[in-house]
Design a protein around this nucleic acid. Structure first.
Lengths: 218, 218
DNA sequence: TAGATTGTTAATCGATTAACAATC
DNA sequence: TAGATTGTTAATCGATTAACAATC
């Protein structure tokens, strides 16, 4: 199994396969063909088979795919079998929303620390994890072998905090701040730019409206 | 200006251009060449020019692009010049985080209503907008010409609520529920699947770790 | 065995990059 | 005018889809 050169397009689709397979599993479905799955997911069967064969031959001719097996294998590929220590920087509503996300633990993301600047939040616990003050962050990261940091802080602070975290051993950043981070190549960054997502929505509305106007004219 | 057939790849990049131009504007930069911008954004100058020319010729040979003009034009393309009435379904941490997102209003997204099932939240106001109970939702949507609904509710409820909203005139859904909605083609859906984003991060960590192990062997 | 469905190669389609004439 | 930089065409690259032999 050689994972090199797998495009981000494929990787973006993997979690969606995983979700659909999880639902099939819950519904007691034992096997599924790429054709069946393609109809449910509204993608081509070809794409499913191509995507999966990047990682190995998980199916069987004449039978299809065993749901449970494929679910487990994709879970492995996604790294959900290993534990990941994760901390959240910024305990505002968004930070708290993520901290409370229960499926975290199930998937191996171990919430290890929460940090904020607001002294009124000090010691308040979310899912058993107390909120700490930002001045403890550096030594906490050094001592606790933190793998992933979630940044839910304003963009003004995000860049310097990210740099500090990376210097102290954090390997990956889940970035919700409205800025790009420009970290070294060996650091994994996954951006969630909510305002950009909303603008895409807004663009699609505008375009649709325009098309309707044009249709009206013709 | 013909917007038909513009790929989602281009559309995903527009908000990022908008963000960079906004920052340049704040810093008092008057003009920028595609080459300059490409270095800041880490994309090719060719791509910037191709992307922009989908919508019109905004630049000038020998000069580049006027930052303020281009910023405004991209804003128009993204539909940020028009107002969009928006409601939030689900006033948990995530719903509240989005409700409190101050830049909303600046970009023309008018928070009009917030809804939840929890009676203890009834009447609590976020940014002046009181939380209403779910049984008021249908008539509220009918009366208030709501364009966008944000779904920050569990997936079990999301599908039926989305269908109801759409039947009552909502045009677009910003979907944070962990499910696909399968709405009619004329409805705009923008999904934010946070768990899938985290899995991509996790995949990239695993793959990097594996590469390192391989390197070690050689 | 016959039917079903994969894994994989080849064909197509679309997106990105390069190149350069047009022009400010 | 000379230099800079766009807008746009052509070339390349990559991703998706189609087709089918292999095989369960």
């Amino acid at each position: 199994m050689d994972n090199r050169g797998i495009s981000q397009a494929v990787i973006r689709r993997l979690p969606r396969y995983y979700r659909y397979l999880g639902e099939l599993l819950e519904n007691g479905v034992e096997r599924i063909s790429s054709n069946d799955l393609s109809k449910r997911m509204k993608v081509t069967a070809s794409q499913i088979r191509q995507d999966l064969n990047n990682f190995g031959g998980f199916g069987q001719q004449g039978y299809g795919y065993n749901v449970k097996y494929l679910y487990t294998e994709i879970g492995k590929i996604l790294g959900l079998e290993e534990d990941h220590k994760i901390i959240i920087i910024g305990a505002g509503n968004l930070g708290q929303a993520l901290a409370n996300y229960a499926a975290f633990e199930k998937r191996g993301f171990i919430l290890t620390g929460i940090f904020d600047v607001n002294p009124r939040l000090e010691g308040v616990a979310i899912r058993g994890v107390p909120i700490r003050m930002m001045d403890e962050l550096k030594s906490f990261v050094q001592k606790n072998d933190v793998e992933i940091a979630v940044l839910t802080i304003p963009k003004e602070k995000a860049i310097e905090v990210a740099n500090m975290l990376v210097e102290n051993g954090v390997r990956a950043i889940w970035n919700f701040a409205h800025t790009d981070l420009n970290l070294p190549d060996n650091i994994i960054v996954e951006n969630v730019h909510l305002s950009e997502s909303l603008m895409q929505l807004s663009y699609n509305i505008s375009r649709y409206n325009e098309d309707q106007r044009k249709k009206g004219k013709n």
